[in-house]
């Protein structure tokens, strides 16, 4: 069973000619089949965690370990992490002009699967996955994220999640900027992947709204660069009613 283990992770970023520590000792274990929600106020370091796990060059790991099935993730390049089974659905997916969605998806699937998918089954696979996400077939011929609306970008991220079938999926504020319909469609996509039982999901969000559609097994409150409280789904209800105030005050006094 695939397991992502994060131990005492410290991460810094360079900003304004100064080194700033963003993550201050994160401990978390995500097993295949589990869904963990990480919730926290703006600036708490949630997205830094997501991008650090994916290997974004902007972030420097100063101490701690991350392993996927015992393999050292931090030693891997960004593409190696993806091929090892990590997937990051980005909050702000990047435009790649000149590269069509269909070419991008096939190149990516070829890299992740280690061989080119057979053309006939692949075309069908993509078509069906797009239909499930209410994406028009013309989508495949557009350039990656170019001119996409916010909702289209997020659906495109979840399309990749469905096609690439990672071991661990990190969803970075996938719910932000979505209206209720889009949120439902995107959540259903995530749930289809979760129902296979083959993915561990790390759902990073500011709002509890998405948790009505995607039920987490564990909820963690993130503040001041680390997890300050963990619990079950009921913790999300508490946050819904009380907000993050208790945690941000606590974080500030430390």
């Amino acid at each position: 069973m695939a397991t992502l283990e994060i131990r005492d992770l410290h991460v810094t970023v360079e900003a304004d000619n100064a080194t700033k520590e963003i993550l201050k000792g994160v401990d978390l274990t995500v097993k295949q089949g589990e869904t963990h929600a990480i919730m926290g106020p703006n600036g708490s370091g949630k997205s830094t965690l997501a991008y650090s796990l994916a290997g974004h060059p902007k972030y420097t790991i100063t101490s701690g370990t991350v392993t996927l099935d015992g393999e050292d993730v931090l030693e891997m390049s960004v593409d190696e992490r993806a091929r090892a089974g990590l997937f990051l659905a980005m909050q702000y997916p990047v435009e790649v002009p000149g590269v069509s969605v269909s070419n991008f998806l096939r190149t990516s699937a070829t890299a992740i699967r280690g061989e080119a998918p057979k053309l006939r089954t692949w075309v069908k696979e993509v078509k069906e996955a797009m239909e499930r996400l209410n994406m028009d077939s013309s989508f495949a011929e557009r350039n990656v994220n170019e001119g996409f609306s916010g909702g289209e970008k997020k659906r495109h991220e979840i399309l990749q999640l469905e096609l690439l079938k990672p071991k661990v999926a990190i969803l970075d504020e996938t719910d932000s900027g979505l209206d209720v319909d889009a949120l439902r469609i995107v959540s259903e996509g995530v749930n289809r992947v979760r129902e296979t039982g083959e993915v561990g999901t790390l759902l990073i969000t500011h709002y509890t709204r998405i948790l009505r559609y995607i039920k987490p097994d564990h909820v963690h409150v993130f503040s001041g660069g680390r997890i300050v409280e963990s619990g079950g789904a009921e913790l999300a209800d508490k946050l819904e009613n009380e907000g993050y105030e208790a945690y941000t005050k606590g974080g500030a006094s430390e």
């Binding site: 390049s77 993806a82 091929r83 997937f87 997916p93 790649v96 990516s108 890299a111 992740i112 990749q160």
Partner: peptide, 10 residues
């Protein structure tokens, strides 16, 4: 980064 995060080498 986006393309590499989808498994595609640099």
């Amino acid at each position: 980064f986006y393309l590499m995060a989808r498994g595609i080498p640099a």
